[in-house]
Nucleic acid binder design. Structure first.
Lengths: 195, 195
DNA sequence: CTTGTAACTGAACGAACGTTCAGTTATGGT
DNA sequence: ACCATAACTGAACGTTCGTTCAGTTACAAG
């Protein structure tokens, strides 16, 4: 067998470079980065990384996938415990953007006000990712304008027409008197803790 | 006044290119992309984009910032309503990764099991972003191993020592009998809706 | 210890890169 | 209608790019 090529170090260094420079290093820059003395060494390494899905190539140019750019290490099994530094190499890396957003050009961020969805675990101050367009189904959480005011509620429909349900027993079902405009469908909710 | 240069179109096109190719286009590629007949036109455009914080430059090479790469359009004022297609130009764009993750190399994703934090709006099936290391303060939500088992709870401390509090009245305060290992601090929680 | 193999070296190549310069064109304000 | 101004054209430049090739080196399995 030939010499082993430890990808882990190299990948870590590429991540580091990208975070600093916000761009993909050139072959000669990678030469320095990895301590190679030949550009062809880089060439081979990149081909490997491409096989494993870390980089893409188009038009003789290199692009990094979310496996390199992404910032979150995903842990498959939860109850299995927490990773020790030694076994961290195995986990997959992804980007939250890619994970949560399917249509970037149609997705917005909204800060939630009011407690009408609190039983659905959506608290005031939470952030909600809303996708415009697409079909709305019964049971979807939507951002809607009823009679001039914007709210976030469960969407429903029956023989009397469309209605909006809060997730809070203190409020009751809303039936639009005049107008109902659906702004979009809630695809995800996010809460950021201060500390 | 000289000719106006409509940045919006160009920025949209750069976004599109980046999503497809996962890399920054070269000057000549941008020439085609924007319909220019001179590379110098691109040169000037890039200088503008750099001023506005869309691109970075290092070593004669271009990098895209999260303003270009990011996938979420941020709406500052919520109750103000939903943006019409016409006014969408004004809003800022950011990346969820950058927004939620401060230390990418120390942050993990965990899927929540169990309902012990349900009153804090953390439901089973939710995803939690955990940052390893750093100081833990009273009131922080932590991922911890008590007497061999991993859980997610509020962290607290008094004269009897450290304890863990659930956010569910059906469960009660936990005091570690033998061991307590803090895996990390919960920095954010995320829920993704299926549809 | 030998041998197969893939990681690497080092040099070379044309192509494409980002940048510069002098000049032209379109546009909004006066 | 004119002018100031910045967007743009078009050509040129040295530099650096990604790729190729023939040859060398280090490792692991038999």
């Amino acid at each position: 067998m030939p010499r082993p090529l430890n990808l882990e170090d190299r990948i870590a260094k590429l991540r580091q470079f990208y975070r600093h420079e916000k761009r993909v290093p050139s072959y000669s820059e990678m030469m320095d980065l990895f301590g190679y003395h030949s550009k062809n060494a880089v060439y081979g390494l990149i081909r490997r990384l491409q096989e494993y899905g870390y980089v893409t190539r188009s038009g003789g140019k290199i692009g990094f996938t979310s496996k390199l750019i992404g910032s979150i290490r995903l842990l498959g099994a939860v109850q299995a415990g927490f990773p020790s530094p030694a076994e961290e190499e195995l986990v997959d890396v992804l980007s939250l953007d890619e994970f949560l957003v399917q249509k970037p050009e149609a997705t917005f961020m909204l800060t939630v006000t009011g407690d009408s969805m609190i039983d659905a675990g959506i608290h005031p101050g939470d952030i909600v990712l809303v996708e415009k367009g697409g079909t709305i189904r019964k049971g979807d959480i939507v951002v809607a304008q009823v009679d001039g005011e914007w709210t976030i509620k469960y969407f429903g429909k029956d023989k009397q027409g469309a209605y909006l349900d809060p997730a809070n027993s203190a409020y009751k079902r809303i039936r639009p008197k005049e107008s109902l405009t659906i702004g979009g469908k809630v695809k995800a909710s996010v809460r950021k803790y201060a500390s």
